[in-house]
Amino acid sequence: MTTHNADDQAVTSASWLSALRAAVVFVLLCGGLYPLLITGVGGLLFPHESTGSLITADGQPVGSELVGQPFSAPEYFHGRPSAAGYDPTAVGGSNWAPSNPDLRARAKEDSQAIQEHEGIGSDRIPVDLIAASGSGIDPHISPEAARIQAPRIAQARDMPVNQVEALIERQVQGPTWGIFGQPRVNVLKINLALDGKDWRK
């Protein structure tokens, strides 16, 4: 292997045929074997998580821990605005810029609806309740966004407000290890708890 025959040898090694063979081999290795192996091991180790983290109540699949659902009835906690209508096959955000008049118009409508439903001024509305999520299926709201809904839910369900408030505090998930992520409430889980449904993974 000397410097002088480098050029001749390069021709054979860089032939079209070896390029094609290498392409096929790496498609099978990286696109076939690798995902197959990981998917197999993942499914074995994490059977609940690997198929979409579904939760069931009374034997029926009622949703996924990870996927938000639309709620509009007054006896439920409501989630965030969604540009995808909470359809996981159409995920996405509004993609409207702060300078876009459509964004202002939508936020105004949402803000007024919340002021009416919850009987509070706009200065008490947590911003996540009028901002559409990036995925369109955000399963969470901020703890404050849950708290402002407590009086309405208590009234609709004819139960004491402090009971709803206590439920919220039990459902608040803090940042992981006190550092990573934001405090939040899973809307589907807290609504299942409100219904007294015994859900399981």
Partner: peptide, 29 residues
């Protein structure tokens, strides 16, 4: 995968949303 990213070759899941007040009858995941 341990955190909940799906790893399966099965097709989409279908669930029935909790709030019967909304227009969505089935949610395909």
């Amino acid at each position: 995968a341990s955190q909940g990213v799906p790893s399966t070759y099965e097709g989409a899941q279908t669930v029935q949303p909790l709030d019967s007040n909304v227009a969505m009858e089935q949610q395909e995941i």
